[in-house]
Computed example of a mutant assay.
Amino acid sequence: MQALKRGWREQKNMAAKPSMPPPWIIILSLLLYLALLAGLVLLPGPSLLERLRWLDSGICAQMATHTFYPGGEPLPLCARNTGIYLGFIVSLALLHITGKGHAQQLPPGRLCAILVSGVILLALDGLNSLALDLGLPHLYQPHNLLRLASGLVTGLALAALSLPIINRLLWCEYSEQRSISSWSALFPFIFMLIICFFAVASQNIVVLYPLALLSTAGLLSALSIVNLLVIITISKREETFEHYLQLLPLFSIALLLSIGEMLILAQLKLALLHALGL
């Protein structure tokens, strides 16, 4: 079956493989990323943290009681979202560092069950917290550390379970690698999530900017990947790519779309709050 799939991919993509982008497009894309980062940090007006909070505000409720305060400053995302997107970007980076960046197979069944259980726990914790906020009966007293922990596990699950699906849509070459192949392969990810957990829980001012930037980068990455897959599907270029550089122009468009979408959502949220008199 796998041999038939590989053969089908080769026949499909012999005439459809995109060429490498010219150097000027690569340079332009890199300059775009530098300009966005420079504008975020150096433009006069609001501080970097205020800009990150505004950018993330359309996605996250940013409730004061659900947020960590390293050095007395609130993070741009609430505890649960900080965990999700920090866990996602760290896990995604670790998958690439460990050579699993092109993996197209899901983890074994038991590992998948554990990862999905983490997502279910996050949902249950969220429902329990919502019940308390609405004055309804709830199972236990919510806590930001629980929100953070369940978010980190969910971020790992999103990275490990979505990467194989994404890779099947991108790459012309088939890979039988699993994103996480065994229990022992899971340990580095657990170790990194524990480090992230204590970094956030410490609320030390030293981790304020790294956490704010990484969690927002995780949110932007997740949204940009969705936009990228939509662009590739619409342009009918699935399973035609060989190198990351071939994706760079399309990913740049996806990133700009993501920033625009987040800014629109932030403005809509502000308008809604004004309309409600909040």
Rank of each mutant, 00 (worst) to 15 (best):
L95V: 02
G83M: 04
I59T: 10
P108V: 06
R53M: 09
Q62C: 04
L52S: 10
G72K: 14
N81D: 13
T98M: 12
S91A: 02
L55Y: 08
L75R: 04
G101I: 03
L77N: 02
Q105P: 00
L75I: 12
N81H: 14
D56G: 15
L52G: 09
G58F: 01
F68G: 04
A93E: 05
Q105L: 09
A64W: 11
H66K: 11
D56H: 06
E50G: 14
Q104N: 11
Y85R: 00
R53G: 00
A61P: 09
T82F: 10
K100V: 08
C60W: 10
I59H: 13
G83F: 04
H102D: 14
T82L: 03
V90T: 00
P74G: 10
I59A: 12
C112P: 13
I59D: 08
Q105R: 15
S57Y: 05
Y85E: 10
R53W: 01
L52C: 12
P74Q: 11
R110G: 10
R80P: 04
Q104F: 00
I84R: 02
S57T: 01
A79E: 01
P76T: 06
A64H: 14
C112G: 15
E50R: 15
Y69T: 06
R53Y: 04
L55D: 00
L52V: 13
P70C: 03
T67C: 00
P108L: 08
M63R: 13
S91P: 07
A61K: 10
W54L: 13
Y85K: 09
C60K: 03
C78G: 01
M63Y: 12
C78R: 02
H66F: 03
C78A: 12
R51P: 04
L52A: 11
L94H: 04
L86W: 05
L55F: 13
G72E: 14
A79P: 09
A79S: 15
G58E: 06
E50D: 14
G83T: 06
R51A: 09
R51V: 00
L92W: 01
Q62R: 04
S57A: 12
P76Y: 00
H102I: 11
E50P: 11
I84S: 10
A103W: 03
F88V: 12
L77F: 04
P76S: 08
G109E: 14
A113D: 14
K100M: 09
L111G: 11
R110K: 13
A79L: 01
A103L: 06
C112K: 15
I97T: 07
G71W: 13
E73Q: 15
S91W: 07
I97Y: 12
A103Q: 02
A64Q: 15
G109V: 14
L75Q: 08
I97Q: 09
D56S: 15
A61S: 14
A64T: 13
Q104H: 11
G83N: 12
P74R: 03
